[in-house]
Design a protein around this nucleic acid. Structure first.
Length: 965
DNA sequence: CCTATATCGTA
DNA sequence: GTACGATATAGGA
């Protein structure tokens, strides 16, 4: 115990306000309780403890206390009734956090001190004094300038938020005098924030100069008539008393009657379970995990503290839907209503798209960047000359910082007149490179949250300008997570829905069809209202949707499965995949030849030429002129000429429909793949860059477009040839890794089916096992036809089976199909239970969930239209299965890149096809890569979830996709 | 010129 | 029976 005691005094009250203002104002617990400030505060405390002597303070404390301002007036109000009188009341959503922060301090086993009639600063001053007297060192954790008067040898200030140490030197720098003269300077200069009057016309600079000259306030006031400057002299004389009062106000009392002696502040050991229990109750998942790890606490075994929050009533989630429909006035608003209220408030603000600023100079731009820095978030939208982010050029950027406060920064607009040569750059635009540099600072600033709609586009575009946007929120993803199944998530749709405002259509500024112009040719007068409005709308949508995230309990889906996947997909898109033009062109030729031959035969059989590609003409020939028996009808009443109908006719011995089926296959392959794909080869990169949509499907699957690389043929031999055109670069291989039967495995887990689980554990052929169970055929005597039936039923189950559908699929009667299904349910009663439970859940709550909590809504599940209702029921049965599998692969993708680089592998993830990932990897790294990929994919649900069924991944490497698959 | 429909490629 | 996107045709604007 030879070490010198060291006391930490933490200025709690100032931290509360700083944490509150530093974080986006929307952090809430799942029941809506605002906890942003508590979160910031807890993180600060934890960092202080966890960093220990490695942190900014550099020493470990022996004693610690957190000091708060008590409620109500202090002795200073008796001295000067205007003291802090202009302070607005604390924000509504901060009020319930005051008590919680005190609870937090206690959970950390730290003394928590406040005293009526005194400010925290006075208590800190008194403790400092006493500690010094007893030979201890003191560190004040805070940044309030009023505390700076306490700095002296043995007393140091540390601002942990700015990671700054404030010693005598820093104080002298700020006030121009040594710390012991700080009060003299403050007495003269006053403080508008605290309403300390000071002497008019004297600021810190002048005050420091005067104090350095005269020594102290009293001496100065005595000799004031000797001051040369007339106005200053007069003011010093006239306001002498005011200065004395000011000094009294800023001088910190050092003789406060302390409620606890220094000994009582001695550090106690952290109690892991106690702290974890508290953090868990507040749903601070990351911090809970960190604390649990550091204190070796088993977080899962600790029960969350039950919180009692003054001024707050936790919502009953079950009551939420009722209260939404409730008649006004009969209920106190709960937190869920608060998110709704926010939506209503922001939705009610009118939008005036003529009020936006066009930013034309760096000075103007800087004002916006400063504002973004000050508030910590900004809505961003880019304008370009193409929908393809891999080829688009940046044309302008719009920003919004408040509803209605938005701007457009044109950067590359050209005058449209100059005909085919185009005009030059429009005057009055900031040079592109200069603006990009300035914007880069803001867009990469970790303290500024960037808010966008469909940011994958903007981040991909800007990554080509060497800008890596972070951190970010995406309103497209927010809406998707909250409302999948209810409506689309495009900005225009969301704007009309939430803001009751129809944004200016793109067509209105750029025209449409042949006369459409690119955005760089749009006049600035038209461009600004359009572009800035997008940023304005995006910001408002964020303000409405972000609070709902916690209120609806969707934070973890958003933060684990959506937001982190966006940069992963952006990189996959940017990498692209190598596609061999020659192979495709060769295939096109082959397909064309085949089509030509078939065409001749078909026309010959028909007796006259017609457009084979026209279902209408084909129907007329088949069912009109040739008088074949028409099978199915189409939605609009026309004869169906679908492949299944034509195949039935062919089976009856008709040549023509058989030839048409062949022709159609070739036509499809040629037009959709071999002819179309080469147009997607990027001239610069020589690769094909698909675009993945994170928010296109209701279930959580991705969608691929432009081109769609998730439907490249594989089932027929001719089609598979197209896959040989997807190749690895020289010296590389393509690896295809796909989950085996992931949806059936997910179903076995969710519905808890013992036979299925056993079969997967034993690595059995699942369809054969199903067939064996259903038809009582031993596995080793299984025939292909029986297995095929079982396979169809397994798929049918996943799709929300109907006798009609199964009959169709297997070409059997509905009665027979019904018998199969009944047999299946007899053998696997758990599946029927699962399906009934899922339908019930959908009917009662309007949505179903995946195993990771993704919600899929079915607003028409109780429809009176049986077709609609049945359809929604099947979809609701399918969604948790398909969606859970999709979530698993999402988790794997989010982790994959780091896992590969941690293993020093240079494999690049290129494509995703629902249950398959494609990588491009140097030949020498193939085996190691497969190991890593398999581990990540097979363990993707963990640690959030341990499936009761093993996941299996098949992986293979080859020179092209066909051979790797 | 634009949109709806039919068809078919994938998981 | 689920979930998608691309293509060509056809018909109304």
């Amino acid at each position: 115990m030879s070490e010198k005691p060291h006391l930490f005094l933490i200025d709690g009250s100032s931290y509360i306000f700083r944490a509150y203002h530093a974080l986006p104002p929307l952090t809430r617990k799942s029941d809506g309780l605002p906890v942003g400030a508590v979160s910031g505060f807890c993180n600060m405390l934890w960092k202080l403890i966890a960093d220990g002597d490695k942190g900014i303070v550099g020493v470990m404390p022996t004693h610690v206390a957190v000091i708060f301002d008590a409620k109500g007036d202090t002795f200073r109000n008796a001295i000067y009734d205007q003291y802090k009188a202009q302070r607005p009341p604390a924000p509504e959503d901060l009020v319930p956090q005051f008590g919680l922060i005190r609870d937090a301090v206690r959970a950390f086993n730290i003394a928590c001190i406040e005293l009526e009639g005194y400010e925290a600063d006075d208590i800190i001053a008194t403790y400092s004094e006493q500690a010094l007297a007893e030979g201890a060192d003191v560190t004040i954790i805070g940044s309030d300038k009023d505390l700076m008067q306490l700095v002296r040898p043995g007393v140091m200030m540390v601002d942990t938020m700015k990671n700054k140490r404030i010693g005598e030197e820093e104080v002298a720098e700020k006030f121009g005098v040594s710390p012991d003269k700080v009060v003299e300077v403050q007495a003269l200069a006053g403080d508008s924030v605290d309403n300390v009057p000071g002497v008019p016309g004297i600021g810190i600079k002048t005050a420091a100069q005067l104090i350095n000259e005269y020594g102290d306030l009293e001496t100065l006031l005595e000799k004031a008539d000797g001051i040369k400057q007339k106005k200053r002299r007069e003011n010093l004389i006239e306001f002498a008393e005011q200065a004395r009062i000011s000094k009294e106000l800023v001088y910190l009392k050092r003789d406060v009657p302390l409620p606890l002696g220094l000994d009582a502040l001695a550090c106690c050991d952290l109690e892991g379970p106690k702290l974890v229990s508290f953090l868990k109750a507040l749903e601070f998942t990351t911090l809970t995990r960190r604390v649990a790890e550091a204190t070796e606490t088993e977080a899962a075994e600790v029960e969350a503290t039950s919180l009692e929050v003054a001024g707050w009533e936790a919502a009953d989630p079950a009551a939420a839907s009722e209260s939404a429909d409730a008649v006004d006035g009969d209920k106190t608003p709960g937190p869920l209503d608060l998110a709704a209220k926010m939506a209503a408030d922001i939705g009610a603000l009118p939008i005036d798209n003529q009020s936006y600023q066009t930013v034309r100079s760096m000075e103007e731009l800087q004002v916006w960047l400063d504002e973004a820095k000050r508030i910590g978030y900004v809505a961003v939208d880019t304008e370009t000359d193409s929908l393809d982010a891999m080829q688009a050029n940046l044309v302008g950027v719009s920003l919004a910082t408040e509803p209605g406060k938005a701007c457009y920064i044109p950067l590359a607009h050209v005058s449209g007149d100059g005909d085919m040569f185009g005009g030059g750059l429009v005057e009055g635009q900031i040079p592109l490179t200069e603006a990009v540099t300035a914007l880069k600072g803001m867009l990469e600033d970790p303290s500024i949250l960037k808010i966008g709609q469909n940011l994958k586009y903007d981040t991909l575009l800007l990554s080509r300008y060497d800008i890596e946007i972070a951190p970010f929120d995406d309103t497209l993803l927010l809406s998707y997570v909250l409302d999948a199944g209810k409506h689309g998530h495009g900005m225009d749709e969301l704007s009309e829905l939430w803001l009751g405002h129809k944004p200016i259509p793109f067509k209105e500024v750029a025209g449409s069809g042949k006369s459409q112009i690119t955005f760089d040719k749009v006049e600035l007068e038209k461009a600004t209202p359009y572009a800035a409005e997008d940023a304005d709308v995006t910001l408002r949508l964020w303000m409405i949707l972000k609070p709902r995230l916690a209120a609806d309990g969707m934070t973890s889906v958003y933060e684990r499965l959506e937001r982190p996947l966006l940069p992963v997909l952006r990189r996959m898109e940017k990498r692209g995949v190598s596609v061999d033009r020659q192979i495709l062109s060769q295939l096109s030729g082959t397909f064309a030849q085949g089509m030509a031959g078939l065409e001749e035969e078909i026309h010959g059989l028909a007796g006259s030429p017609f457009n084979i590609g026209s279902p209408k003409q084909l129907g007329d020939i088949l069912f009109g002129e040739m008088g074949l028996p028409g099978g199915k009808k189409t939605k609009t009443g026309a004869w169906s000429t679908s492949a299944s109908v034509l195949e039935d006719l062919a089976a009856e011995g008709h040549e023509l429909p058989k030839k048409v089926v062949e022709w159609r296959q070739l036509s499809k392959l040629k037009s959709t793949y071999t002819d179309a794909l080469p147009h997607f080869i990027n001239p610069e990169t020589k690769r094909v860059h698909t675009s993945y949509s994170l928010a296109a499907t209701s279930t959580g699957r991705l969608a691929s477009s432009d081109p769609n690389l998730q439907n490249i043929p594989v089932r027929t031999e001719a089609g598979r040839k197209i896959r040989t055109a997807f190749v690895a670069e020289n010296g590389n291989k393509l690896i295809s890794a796909d989950y085996s039967q992931i949806e059936l495995r997910v179903l076995a887990h969710m519905a808890d089916i013992p036979q299925l689980k056993k079969a997967f554990e034993d690595g059995l052929d699942i369809h054969a096992m199903t067939a064996s169970e259903m038809f009582h055929v031993p596995l080793d005597e299984m025939d292909a036809a029986t297995r095929r039936r079982a396979k169809a039923i397994n798929f049918g189950i996943i799709y929300g089976i109907s006798a009609f559908g199964l009959a169709n699929q297997l070409g059997i009667s509905r009665g027979e199909a019904k018998t199969y299904i009944d047999t299946y349910f007899e053998r696997f009663p758990g599946i029927r239970d699962y399906m009934e439970a899922t339908k019930k859940a959908a009917r009662e709550q309007g949505y179903v969930e995946t195993i990771f909590g993704r919600k899929i809504h079915y607003p028409e599940i109780n429809s009176k239209n049986p077709n609609m209702r049945n359809f929604q029921e099947r979809a609701a049965i399918n969604a948790p299965i398909q969606g859970s599998a999709a979530d698993i692969l999402r988790r794997a993708m989010v982790r994959m890149e780091d896992a590969l680089s941690d293993a020093s592998l240079s494999a690049r993830m290129l494509l995703q096809v629902h249950d398959e990932l494609i990588f491009e990897v140097p030949e020498g790294e193939v085996d190691d890569t497969i190991k890593v990929v398999r581990t990540i994919m097979e363990n993707a649900p963990m640690p959030a979830l341990q499936l009761s069924v093993p996941l299996k991944v098949d992986a293979e490497a080859a020179d092209n996709w066909d051979e790797a698959h």
